[in-house]
């Protein structure tokens, strides 16, 4: 293996395929978080929700042999965690940054505890979501290989982006979400129930975060290990800022980060003569550079992190 092979077609296809697969958990988690933030709620508990989703999906899939049941169970657990976050941040009006961290710790601790009591050891399953070749499309040279031979969770994650865009910009619900995040008092005056909208977005955020966890444990990996998300939930929160609170912005950020991550792995395999420490830094450095270059281009939702109190 030498560096020149890095630019061959098969290697480039490998990098892009890996990048797409790596992006799917980020997409679920960041799109969910984006809806919450668009309505004015910052949820820093994404990582904990992902861990609970990852564990639940893995455990149910292991016991039933059916990853769809695992996914559904994970979504239910995610909804509960999202609902709890909504109670704390919307009804009780707790400081969102702090309560989110609280839910992160709960999710991490609880998933460890459940792992220890219900499983006790790391296992590999072979009943997760396998790669599915989409008929016809997967036969297209290059593009077919990159885009249409992925697992179900990856297809779902990428489908979610245009759906999220449509909901946010083309439906009355999306208008309400944006209104509540920008000017909840005006929205309230016009008869929008601010609390209901925020409950909905934060609960859905929990569902999507749990799906992100499931995308790891029963689709990309088929393994559960304690704390396996390794900070991905926090990167997802950062991607919402990076993407300017817009679905396609989030997509761009997630793809950029994941593609560079995949690229640096292949650069190590093909012995690019740069120390591995520098290559490992690459995705983070590049993301920061893009962020700096685009700073000030978009504005955060005006009511972000501000609990709503009717005057």
């Amino acid at each position: 293996m030498d560096t020149s092979q890095l630019l061959s077609a098969t290697v480039l296809v490998g990098i892009l395929t890996a990048g797409i697969r790596l992006a799917s958990p980020y997409l679920f988690a960041a799109i969910g978080e984006m809806f919450g933030q668009r309505s004015g709620v910052l949820n820093l508990g994404v990582e904990g929700q992902m861990l609970m989703g990852a564990f639940t999906a893995f455990y149910v899939t292991l016991r039933t042999g059916n990853p769809w049941l695992g996914l559904l169970a994970a979504m239910a657990v995610g909804a509960l965690m999202g609902l709890a976050m909504a109670v704390v941040s919307v009804t009780w009006r707790a400081v969102q940054g702090i309560s989110g961290i609280g839910f992160y710790i709960v999710g991490m601790g609880l998933s460890e505890l459940l792992f220890k009591t219900l499983l006790g050891e790391v296992k590999v399953i072979n009943t997760g979501f396998n790669a599915v070749n989409i008929p016809l499309l997967s036969q297209i040279p290059v593009l077919g290989e990159i885009f249409f031979r992925q697992n179900v969770m990856t297809y779902l994650a990428f489908t979610l982006v245009p759906v999220a865009w449509f909901v946010l910009y083309k439906t009355p619900l999306g208008l309400k979400i944006r209104a509540v995040g920008e000017n909840p008092h005006a929205a309230d005056t016009l008869g929008v129930n601010v609390a209901h909208i925020r409950y909905l977005t934060v609960t859905m955020g929990g569902v999507f975060s749990a799906m992100a966890g499931a995308a790891l444990s029963v689709a990309n990996l088929n393994v559960f290990q304690e704390n396996m998300t390794a900070g991905m939930g926090f990167i997802a929160v950062a991607l919402v800022y990076f993407g300017g609170w817009r679905p396609f912005g989030v997509l761009f950020g997630a793809l950029l980060f994941s593609m560079v991550m995949a690229l640096q792995i292949f650069m190590q395999v093909y012995r690019v003569p740069v120390p591995s420490e520098f290559l490992i830094m690459m995705p983070y450095v590049l993301t920061m550079i893009v962020l700096v270059l685009t700073v000030g281009r978009v504005r955060a939702p005006a009511a972000l992190t501000k609990p709503f109190v009717r005057e």
Binding site: M1, T10, V11, G14, A18, R21, L22, P25, L216, N220, L221, V223, Q225, N227, M228, A230, M232, M261, A262, I265, F266, Q268, V269, Y270, R271, S276, E277, I280
Partner: peptide, 27 residues
Amino acid sequence: IQILKVFTGSFGDVALAREAADAHIAA
């Protein structure tokens, strides 16, 4: 024999360890 080597930069990132293994296998 050719020896390929990837460091993931993390003791905990299971997803990256998986991608590193896949990259080796692809090579």
